[in-house]
C-alpha cells in the first residue's frame, strides 16, 4: 500500500547560525500507511514534537522532504492549508488554544475554516463531541468553565471535527489522572476504529502506547532508533533502556519470570497477552 504520509531524510535545525543552533530532527525516514495506528515514542527532547509539526506543514524542513499522498508538501505552499485539514494535529496541552464563547463554536472553528456550511459544521461538531464523550448539554457552555479534562476533550474534538485522514496527537494524556488518560485513549481508539483514519500517537509512556498502536517508532537524539511492531520493539529491552525508555510493567514482569526459568514470551506487553502466556503454565502446574 502506498503510504499516506512519508518523510525522506527529514532534518530540522533550530536557530541556524546562532549560538543556540540545535539539530532537532536528523535524517528521519518515516512512512505512515492509510488507516495505520502508529506510536511515536521518545525521551523528552528527542525531537518528537518537532517531527510531527512537519507532517502538516507547520515547519519547513531544513533538509529533506515530506510527502502527503506522494506529493511534496512544500512544492506548492498554497496547498498547505488544505493539507492541514486532512492531517489533523492536536498539540500538547491543547486546552490552552480554546478561545470561543461556547464549546460548540470552538469545535466548529476548524470545520468553518474548511468552508463548510453551518449545517455541515454543526453536524460535525455534534459527531465530534459524541466521539470524545462530551455530553450534548456542554455545547452551549463556555469552554473556560469546564474542568481540565473536559477542556482537553473539547480541544481534541476541535481537530477531530475536521475529519482528517491522519490524526496526530502529541501527548494527549499529559497531566491527566489515570482515569482521564484511559478515557481519552479509549476515545482515540474508538475514533480510529470508526473512521479508518491513520492515527499517530506521540508519547513518552510505553504503557500508553503499548495498548493502542500497531507499530512503534522510537526516536532517540533526533534520529529513528527503532521501527517495528510493539512485540519487536519490546523485545529489545536493553537498547530501550539505554535510550532512557522503559518497557511496560507487564513486560518487565514477564522478563523476570523468564529469567526465573519459565518458558514464556518475554515481550508480551499487555495484561491480556501475559495472561494468555501464563494461563497454560498455571493449568499444567495445577494437579488435576
Amino acid at each position: 500500500m502506498t503510504p499516506i504520509l512519508k518523510t525522506e531524510q527529514l532534518s530540522y535545525v533550530y536557530g541556524a547560525g546562532t549560538p543556540f543552533e540545535r539539530r532537532a530532527v536528523d535524517r528521519v525516514d518515516l512512512e505512515v500507511a492509510p488507516g495505520e495506528f502508529l506510536g511515536i515514542i521518545g525521551h523528552t527532547g528527542s525531537g518528537k514534537s518537532t517531527l510531527i509539526q512537519h507532517l502538516n506543514g507547520l515547519l519547513r524542513p531544513t533538509e529533506g522532504r515530506v510527502l502527503f499522498e506522494g506529493r511534496d508538501l512544500w512544492r506548492d505552499p498554497k496547498q498547505i492549508r488544505r493539507t492541514r485539514f486532512r492531517v489533523g494535529l492536536v498539540f500538547q496541552y491543547p486546552e490552552y488554544q480554546l478561545f470561543e464563547e461556547t464549546v460548540a463554536r470552538d469545535i466548529a472553528f476548524g470545520p468553518r475554516n474548511m468552508g463548510l456550511s453551518e449545517e455541515d459544521a454543526a453536524r460535525r461538531v455534534e459527531a465530534a463531541m459524541q466521539l470524545v464523550g462530551l455530553a450534548p448539554e456542554a455545547a452551549d457552555k463556555s469552554p473556560f468553565d469546564l474542568s481540565g479534562g473536559q477542556k482537553r476533550r473539547v480541544a481534541i474534538a476541535g481537530v477531530i471535527a475536521m475529519e482528517p485522514d491522519v490524526l496526530i496527537l502529541d501527548e494527549p494524556t499529559a497531566g491527566l489522572d489515570p482515569r482521564g488518560r484511559e478515557d481519552i485513549l479509549g476515545h482515540i481508539r474508538a475514533y480510529h476504529a470508526e473512521h479508518g483514519s491513520a492515527v499517530i500517537l506521540v508519547s513518552h509512556s510505553m504503557e500508553e502506547i503499548a495498548r493502542s498502536v500497531q507499530r512503534i517508532v522510537v526516536l532517540n537524539r533526533a534520529r529513528v532508533a527503532m521501527d517495528g511492531t510493539p512485540h519487536e520493539v519490546f523485545s529489545r529491552v536493553t537498547e530501550l533502556e539505554q535510550t532512557g525508555l522503559s518497557v511496560p510493567a507487564v513486560t518487565q514482569v514477564m522478563r523476570r519470570l523468564r529469567a526465573l526459568g519459565l518458558d514464556i514470551d518475554p515481550a508480551a506487553y499487555t495484561v491480556r497477552q501475559a495472561a494468555a502466556e501464563l494461563a497454560p503454565l498455571i493449568r499444567r502446574a495445577r494437579p488435576c
Partner: peptide
Amino acid sequence: MNAQRARGADFDSGHVVRRARALVPLLVP
C-alpha cells in the same frame, strides 16, 4: 499560532479587517 494554524487559521492573508479578526483565536488564549 501553530495550534490554530493546524485548525486552518490563516494569519497571513486577506485584508486588514480579516487579519484583525484572525487574531482573536490567538489573543484570547
